[in-house]
Design a protein around this nucleic acid. Structure first.
Length: 589
RNA sequence: GGGGUCGUAGUUCAGUUGGUUAGAACGCCGGCCUGUCACGCCGGAGGUCGCGAGUUCGAGUCUCGUCGGCCCCGCCA
């Protein structure tokens, strides 16, 4: 190229008037007035208006032919715009460039969609032409913020004594947790590596090795179905610390989050964050990642339905189940149609939803006709009902299930009634998680967090008699109803780890085969340690106000885990398969 | 694995009860225009209505299947 830029398209202002400059960039728009031609030249730094006059006969005809997304270089003089032609919406709007030389660096095919923030194309088209989508200022900004966040993260943890250490991607398949992505081994036919679901075991072993504080911004892989905030490959800010307890890990994270929000958004976040026990979160919000920006808290009304004429609820109450209620004080704000929508939503979650209105001191509509005087009295007493209230009920013999459904209804109501203040940022920790949960399919306990999570020391005597009651030394960080980080204090003693494996019905032989390397490491002076991992993509999504994780990942997959631009996954040559000793059976089409 | 929703011009969409030649805006192509900035004006090209069956005298429209995008449940320690 002949003309190399002296400035970017986002920096020239009135102070540069009179200077000769060279700009490189893409043609975003052109306005040909027959004589004078205006072109908006774009690069990632901004836009600058350049002007072609017919007097420049040697390149004016070429300027006539410039079209969207042509890549050009121009030389010119910075001119102050006439007063009535200043564009206050543009950083460079005070000036324009009178072009004195033009070089077309590359032409462009007509793009399948216009590359402007106000033009929207369907997402599959955007993903197919990702390089064009990424040229849009909005997406470029997301990626730039992501970069700044990664830089802050590295700086923060380095300054706090953490060491960035890479861990392998070709690792060992582990039971428990998500489905693994497998990588066949050519040198060992029939054997497979697994891509890491997280660097969990490696970072614990780094603690045994004495690195004391570790961190990494690292890709993790889980072969599970996608959501708008979930991709099969995603990035974690992963860390681990030795000689610490919960307060140390949470304290570092609070300072990290505070610094990050100050640096990126210039927002002041108050620390420490509130800690909410898991049981309280479930009782009040029906969620282990509650959105606490609004009320509508769950209230238990099981006792009101003992001996009720409403058979469904009476049975649940008498079988030791749970009946919960959410009260909308100004019930008239919810229309009959909205009630029906919520009922349909509950049905979608495999639950029923009952409702009743309270006005003029009496119950009507919904399940009112099933409510005898005792239930009515009990409800008014328990709930302290205002006139005009609307009550939603969910009951189930499975307490956690009923609470979860009611929690989902609560969220819907919050959105429906506009109770959520988007400008508020509510951080809190969820603590005191159960260590285990019963998996009815496998008919055994599985680890709620992961099998290396330490039980609470005070609960350790429950290991044999009542495993379900054991609490874990685990903590999740929640922001506005989104889980953004999760971690725990780990087991550092071999005897405790073996005990937990027993509970999970992972046999000694199996444990040795799958985690033997970790168990062995725990025998050689493993320090007490713990850590946490941040969902980096999700955090970028929240900090950029994006609706989908795909808008903060340069090259994301679709909901069916396909890369539309490069067309992946795809078939491979027979020769490649043969070399790996792989025979594909039951291939779809 | 299950459910919902969408699929019509390059793009975003409209398309009535099943009925003549499937429309609009933007984009694209050509022409005019020397102060616009989502410039303006005139003209033009552009369609396998995702794909395949079926019902019907007749299907963009109704039915079934299928493919794809998105959202949700399950799943995600």
């Amino acid at each position: 190229m002949r003309l190399k830029r002296t400035h970017t398209c986002g920096e020239l202002t009135a102070t540069h008037v009179g200077q000769e400059v060279v700009l490189n960039g893409w043609v975003e728009n052109w306005r040909d007035h027959g004589g004078v031609i205006f072109i908006d030249l774009r690069d990632r730094y901004g836009k600058t208006q350049i002007v072609f006059y017919p007097q420049y006969e040697q390149f004016y005809p070429l300027a006539k032919k410039l079209r969207s997304e042509y890549v050009i270089a121009i030389q010119g003089i910075v001119r102050k715009r006439p007063d009535d032609a200043v564009n206050p919406n543009l950083f460079t709007g005070e000036i324009e460039i009178e072009v004195t030389d033009l070089e077309v660096l590359n032409e462009s095919a007509v793009p399948p969609f216009e590359i402007k923030d106000y033009i929207d194309a369907s997402e599959d088209l955007r993903l197919q032409y990702r390089y064009l989508d990424l040229r849009r200022p909005k997406l470029q900004n997301n990626i730039l913020i992501r970069h700044q966040m990664a830089q802050f993260t590295r700086r923060f943890f380095s300054e706090n004594g953490f060491v960035e250490i890479e861990t392998p991607f070709l690792t060992k398949s582990t039971p428990e947790g998500a489905r693994d992505f497998l990588v066949p081994s050519r040198l060992h036919k029939g054997k497979f590596y697994a891509l890491p679901q997280s660097p969990q075991t490696y970072k614990q072993i780094l603690m045994v090795a004495g690195f004391d504080k570790y961190f990494q911004i690292v890709k993790c892989f889980r072969d599970e179905d996608l959501r708008k905030d979930r991709q099969p490959e995603f990035t974690q800010i992963d860390l681990e610390m030795s000689f610490v307890d919960e307060d140390d890990v949470m304290g570092v994270m609070e300072r990290f989050v505070q610094g990050l929000f100050k640096e990126i958004l210039d927002e002041d976040i108050a620390i420490p964050f509130e800690r909410i026990p898991y049981d309280v979160a479930m009782d009040k919000y029906g969620s282990d990642k509650p959105d606490t920006r609004f009320g509508l808290e769950l209230q238990e009304v099981t006792s009101a339905f003992k001996g009720s004429g409403f058979n469904v609820f009476r049975n649940i109450a008498e079988q030791g189940g749970y009946i919960g209620c959410v009260v909308v004080d100004e019930g008239t704000r919810v229309s009959r149609k909205q009630v029906d929508d919520l009922t349909a939503y509950a049905k979608h979650l495999n639950s029923g939803l009952a409702f009743v209105r309270y006005r003029n001191g009496a119950f009507d509509s919904g399940i009112a006709k099933f409510l005898g005087q005792p239930e009515q009295n009990a409800l008014t007493t328990i709930l302290n009902l205002p006139q005009g209230a609307l009550l939603f009920f969910v009951g189930n013999t499975d307490r956690e299930f009923a609470q979860t459904v009611l929690g989902a209804i609560r969220l819907r109501l919050g959105e429906m009634l506009g109770l959520i203040d988007e400008s508020v940022k509510k951080f809190h920790w969820i603590v005191d998680f159960p260590l285990l949960e019963f998996d009815p399919e496998e008919k055994r306990y599985v680890a709620r967090h992961h099998p290396f999570t330490s039980p609470k020391l005070s609960d350790i005597n429950l290991l044999d008699e009542n495993p379900a009651a054991i609490k874990a030394r685990a903590y999740d960080l929640v922001l506005n109803g989104n889980e953004i980080a999760g971690g725990s204090i780990r087991i550092h003693r071999k005897d405790v780890q073996e005990k937990v494996f027993q509970l999970l019905q992972i046999g000694t032989e199996e444990a040795q085969r799958k985690f033997g390397f970790l168990l062995k490491a725990l025998e050689y002076g493993a320090p007490p340690h713990g850590g946490i991992a941040f969902g980096f993509d999700r955090l970028v999504m929240l900090m950029t106000g994006s609706q989908s994780i795909r808008d903060v990942i340069a090259f994301p997959k679709t909901a069916r885990a396909v890369g539309l631009m490069e067309d992946t996954p795809s078939e491979v040559d027979e020769a490649q398969l043969k070399e790996l000793g792989i025979l594909v059976v039951g291939k779809k089409k």
